[in-house]
């Protein structure tokens, strides 16, 4: 769309007023280029996280200890694929298609959440991921249901509804192990010990180092700061850990009466940046497996296209 400078000013004023009035921006509305680019980057990273996040858990599907647990885990992993698709669709309303985003993911030019670069070493990790990783995701995502961009907000509503099952099945799994044999209890504790700190990192760098935060808050893409959400998550988790009969691996964790929040220890941001830089335990494996899955699926896409062409039903 070509517009003259004064026209753009008017359009920008309309956009600003809509955001200020808490109205939603819809795909065909005028929006600042930087708003569009920020959303595409954030939604893409979010979508990539959903589908890469299928890998660490899918790792345990064939070894689930019972048919019940196996059916649950398959349903959860399938949900994550669905979440990826909702989000790629939301990105597409901004003019960037799924294929382009997948190419960028495969080329290592777009990121996904650093949490999925950690390995799932035991069955208890499936529980710790459900409780802590999905739990942190929910804490991040609930405010996104009110994000200023309509299609993203609507995708988040659908995702949040489905996430609560993810978190509860993980919690129930950990509780079963925690109340089981000594070895099972130890396995649950070990999983929580390994996933706790990376889960806190999921909220992103501290507020004073967060590059995009202020602008995203002004655009109402983000509603709360990284540190605010991280604190909310810690406060929720402490009593939940007590009910599990498990401890959180932080000697500095204690209730602060004056703040009305739990104080917690320093996060190892060097580790976070190393994992982001590609040096986590599983970065290469995750991207490698994603590329292989995409290549191995090529014949299915080709067959579906050939079938559609033969039967002449590709009407659109």
């Amino acid at each position: 769309m070509t517009t003259t400078a004064p026209e753009t000013e008017v359009l920008a004023a309309v956009f600003d007023a809509a955001v200020a009035a808490d109205e939603r921006i819809e795909p065909r509305d005028w929006m600042p280029d930087a708003y569009r680019a920020t959303l595409v980057r954030q939604i893409a990273q979010h979508a990539h996280s959903e589908i890469i996040g299928m890998q660490p858990e899918a790792n345990w599907i064939t070894r689930a200890p019972s048919l019940r647990r196996k059916a649950i885990l398959m349903a959860k992993v399938q949900d994550e694929a669905g979440h990826g698709l909702y989000l790629y669709s939301a990105a597409e309303t901004l003019g960037t298609g799924r294929d382009e985003l997948l190419d960028k993911l495969h080329a290592g030019r777009q990121r996904y959440s650093s949490i999925f670069n950690y390995p799932t070493l035991t069955w208890a990790d499936v529980g710790a991921i459900g409780w802590l990783v999905d739990g942190a995701a929910i804490t991040n995502q609930v405010p996104l249901c009110r994000c200023s961009y309509g299609p993203y907000a609507r995708a988040m509503v659908r995702i949040c509804k489905e996430e609560s099952f993810h978190q509860r099945q993980g919690y129930e799994l950990l509780l079963t192990l925690s109340r089981g044999t000594e070895a099972q209890h130890a396995m649950a504790q070990d999983a929580v010990d390994r996933w706790w700190w990376p889960s806190l990192m999921m909220f992103g760098p501290p507020d004073d180092e967060s590059a995009h935060s202020a602008q995203s808050m002004a655009w109402k893409i983000k509603r709360h700061s990284n540190d605010e959400l991280r604190q909310r998550f810690v406060d929720i988790c402490v009593p939940q850990a007590e009910s599990l009969g498990l401890t959180l691996p932080d000697p500095d964790l204690r209730w602060n009466e004056a703040r009305g929040h739990y104080d917690f220890g320093a996060i190892d941001w060097d580790e976070f940046h190393e994992v982001l830089r590609g040096n986590g335990p599983c970065n290469d494996q995750r991207i490698g497996q994603r590329r292989t899955a995409h290549e191995n699926g090529a014949w299915v896409r080709e067959a579906a296209a050939a079938h559609a062409a033969k039967h002449g039903k590709a009407t659109a």
Binding site: A75, Q78, D79, G82, L85, Y86, S89, E92, R98, R154, A155, R158, E162, A304, A305, H307, A308, A309, H311, K313, A314, T315
Partner: peptide, 23 residues
């Protein structure tokens, strides 16, 4: 409910079922 890509109407329906009516 949303959108999806599919090569034809039949696949679109099947994918829509799996994507938007799992519950």
């Amino acid at each position: 409910a949303g959108s999806l890509h599919a090569p034809d109407a039949e696949m679109a329906l099947r994918n829509a079922r799996d994507l938007y009516t799992r519950r």
